[in-house]
Design a protein around this nucleic acid. Structure first.
Length: 421
DNA sequence: TCTGGGGTCCTAGGACCC
DNA sequence: TCTGGGGTCCTAGGACCC
């Protein structure tokens, strides 16, 4: 049996831990740049605010219902996420961290009759030790565990845990479960299946395997099998290193000068490099892209990008940034207004297995020593957007709105709150 | 006026190898 | 008229996830 522990309205719950007076009130957390709603309390959902809805579309609701609005505060959320995950590790044999607010639990070997109580215990202890409400779904496969955890949210009477394993119970649930809510079936497939009269998860599992295979390939067949109770998606305890690392942002204002754009891209490059070093990798490729505001119909649109190849895989901020600078000089077009840009690193290999190069002229030892010194100093400051030590081309100012940011309560003592009552 | 960011996996087709 | 067989690697695009 597998479990899925899913934090309820996670970002909102994080804010509520430190502002208990927000309990019972409508709360929304916004995406970067204060653009869209990315987390909503149940009260905010009830007011009709949808996932990903732009703030300007529901400003009036905010006023009318005194909705509490927050900019996203990832330092707080990722620290709270670590707390939840480590709490879970203390309660079950193995945990697969799936996302910032979800973890799969390996429950093989635990007697069936103990599972419901275990689920409730997990939910209770997470709440007690971290302040975060957690829904625990338990079922024979990961996909069904996901279904079960959704039921917890739908039915408060389940008290945070739902065990689902008897065939007749599963059928009863799947018959009422919209196909689009199934893990692995997204918008495109919903459209296709609905057009064919397949609306519920039960309709889907009742299809012959060949049809699913032809329409959706092997990934669809896995989902189909999982819904039928056959485990087909591996449980992966340790996280594999990322194969691609990206930092990108929309700017709060449009940028026209190459110098200003360079400052932002240099910051993105530096943050990418930190992520790369944190996972002890090096990269063979860097890509940049710059683009205009895609929502503006009244000006010229462009999406420009370049790639650089490093013959010897690198994790040096200096080397990556100089590649970024060259690419920007190459693709920048005068006269456009840029709204979004990003840096992507790929061709990622483990740092201790970097292939050397006969004609390499760089003193890699020296770069490595410098980078680890820089990382050590910046780790103390904790804020990736204003590091203590940075290369000169990095912008000092982030061109980003975050007008409703809460303090980084748990990680930064410079940021400690005034008193909230 | 205002519209997020960061990832993964699979497949088909082309280039290339012997 | 008839034109082999068996592979690998890479890339772009499409789907998905949170």
């Amino acid at each position: 049996m597998y479990g899925l522990a899913d934090c309820n309205n996670f970002f909102v719950s994080c804010e509520r831990v430190f502002r208990p007076s927000l309990e019972g009130r409508p709360v929304v957390v916004l995406s970067n740049n204060d653009g869209c709603a990315v987390a909503r309390s149940n009260e905010a959902k009830a007011l009709g605010i949808t996932m990903g809805q732009p703030l300007f579309q529901f400003r009036e609701l905010v006023q009318r219902h005194r909705i509490e609005v927050f900019s996203s505060n990832y330092r707080l959320y990722s620290d709270m996420s670590h707390r939840v995950h480590s709490t879970l590790r203390g309660l079950v044999p193995a945990v697969e961290v799936y996302s910032i607010d979800e973890a799969f639990l390996d429950l093989r070997g635990i007697p069936l009759e103990e599972l419901t109580e275990l689920g409730h215990r997990i939910s209770r202890i997470c709440r007690r030790d971290t302040g975060i409400p957690v829904s625990v779904g338990i079922a024979p496969t990961k996909t069904l565990a996901k279904v079960a955890s959704k039921l917890c949210k739908q039915y408060p009477r389940l008290n945070g845990a739902c065990l689902m394993y008897r065939a007749e119970d599963i059928e009863k649930v799947l018959r009422r479960f919209p196909i689009g809510d199934v893990w692995g079936i997204g918008r495109r497939y919903v459209k296709r299946w609905t057009a064919a009269g397949i609306r519920t998860a039960w309709d889907f599992v009742s299809l012959p395997e060949e049809i699913v295979s032809v329409q959706m390939g092997i990934t669809g067949v896995r989902t189909w099998r999982e819904l039928r109770g056959e485990p087909s998606i591996d449980f992966e305890q340790q996280r594999s290193p990322k194969q691609q690392i990206c930092v990108s942002r929309s700017f709060s204002e449009e940028i026209t000068s190459i110098e200003q754009l360079h400052g932002q891209l240099a910051s993105f490059a530096a943050q990418c490099a930190v992520k790369l070093r944190t996972q002890r990798s090096a990269c063979h490729e860097a890509i940049i892209f710059i683009s205009t505001n895609r929502y503006r119909g009244d000006s010229e649109q462009a999406y420009l990008n370049r790639m650089t190849i490093f013959p010897v895989a690198t994790d040096s901020t200096l080397e990556i940034e100089s590649g970024v600078r060259a690419m920007l000089n190459d693709c920048f077009r005068e006269g456009l207004s840029y709204k979004r840009a990003g840096v992507i690193l790929s061709g990622i290999v483990p740092r201790d297995r970097v292939q050397g190069h006969l004609f390499d002229s760089l003193d890699r030892e020296k770069h490595a020593r410098l980078m680890s010194a820089v990382d050590a100093v910046n780790a103390v400051a904790a804020d990736p957007w204003s590091p203590t030590v940075r290369i000169a081309s990095q912008a000092e100012k982030v061109l980003n709105h975050s007008d409703h940011r809460s303090p980084a309560y748990t990680t930064d003592w410079n940021d400690l709150p005034v008193v909230h009552i």
